[in-house]
C-alpha cells in the first residue's frame, strides 16, 4: 500500500493521486461527479484568505471545497513529500 494522506494536509502547489473518498454517500457522489475519482491527480492551488475553503485543480478546472471535506479525501502525494 502506498502512503496516503488527507488532501487537506497538502500545501499549496502540492499534488496527489486520489486513493479513497470517505464521507456520506450524497457528498461522495457529488464530488465524484465533479471528477474527483480514484486515480485522478488533484493539485492544491491555495487556501481562502481565512484558511478555509481550499481551491483545487482537478482535470484542468478549478474547484473549491471545504477543508473538512478535503480531510476525508485520501491521496497519495506526488512530487515533493508533505510536511
Amino acid at each position: 500500500m502506498m502512503d496516503v494522506t488527507p488532501l487537506a494536509s497538502l500545501m499549496p502547489g502540492q499534488a496527489g493521486v486520489i486513493a479513497e473518498l470517505h464521507g456520506d454517500d450524497s457528498l461522495r457522489v457529488r464530488l465524484m461527479e465533479m471528477g474527483l475519482i480514484r486515480g485522478e491527480t488533484v493539485h492544491v492551488l491555495k487556501y481562502a484568505p481565512l484558511g478555509d475553503p481550499v481551491e483545487l485543480d482537478i482535470a484542468g478546472y478549478h474547484l473549491s471545497i471545504r477543508k473538512g471535506d478535503a480531510q476525508r479525501i485520501l491521496v497519495s502525494p506526488t512530487g515533493q513529500p508533505t510536511r
Binding site: 457529488r30 465533479m34 478546472y61 473549491s64 471545497i65 471545504r66
Partner: peptide, 9 residues
C-alpha cells in the same frame, strides 16, 4: 450546505 463550488476562469 456542502460547498462544492466551481471557480471558472
Amino acid at each position: 450546505p456542502a460547498l462544492i463550488l466551481e471557480l471558472p476562469p
